[in-house]
């Protein structure tokens, strides 16, 4: 038993728990595959994985590297970019069907009301969070001037 566990690389509990999970998952996947017009569920599964791990993460990591270089009057501004970028980006990601108008036809058909203003309201939120972030940065710059503190090391202030 112990030799088997050593060869497997983990405790028997590890194997049993996974076998049970795979059994249940296989039951669900086979039911989906059994249904007409549902086979592409598996394609969407894989596409979601690839989109997140190989497209989304590298894309925002690259943008973040660029943002890390931004300094305003010598002050690192990266977190003044991160906060509004994360808020506006997440809202776009989650509400993409409405903001882009892709859901309009369906939504108009079922609800009887013309969906309107989603892009405009998202842009208004985007403008508000970027302006708010810029104002905070401006206040920090002003405060620094008042304190006459010419050296601001990274890691000061808001933890940047």
């Amino acid at each position: 038993m112990r030799a088997l566990a050593r060869r497997y690389g983990a405790s028997p509990v590890h194997l049993l728990v996974h076998l049970a999970a795979f059994g249940l998952a296989l039951w669900a996947i086979l039911h989906v595959l059994d249904l007409r017009n549902a086979r592409n569920v598996v394609v969407w599964f894989a596409a979601a994985l690839i989109a997140q791990d190989l497209i989304l993460i590298p894309a925002y990591s690259a943008l973040d590297r660029l943002a890390q270089r931004v300094r305003v009057a010598g002050l690192p501004a990266v977190n003044h970019i991160r906060v509004p970028a994360v808020v506006s980006g997440l809202l776009l990601l989650v509400y993409f069907p409405l903001i882009s108008g892709r859901a309009d036809g369906n939504l108009r058909f079922v609800s009887g009301i013309e969906p309107s203003g989603y892009l405009e309201r998202w842009l208004a939120i985007v403008a508000a969070v970027w302006v708010a972030s810029a104002v905070v940065l401006g206040l920090r710059l002003l405060l620094r001037q008042q304190l006459r503190d010419p050296v601001v090391a990274p890691g000061d202030g808001d933890g940047a």
Binding site: N37, A38, R102, N106
Partner: peptide, 13 residues
């Protein structure tokens, strides 16, 4: 958001 870019039944999937 009532957007269905796929070809499967939402509830089932």
């Amino acid at each position: 958001q009532n957007w269905y870019p796929w070809g499967f039944n939402f509830v089932v999937a």
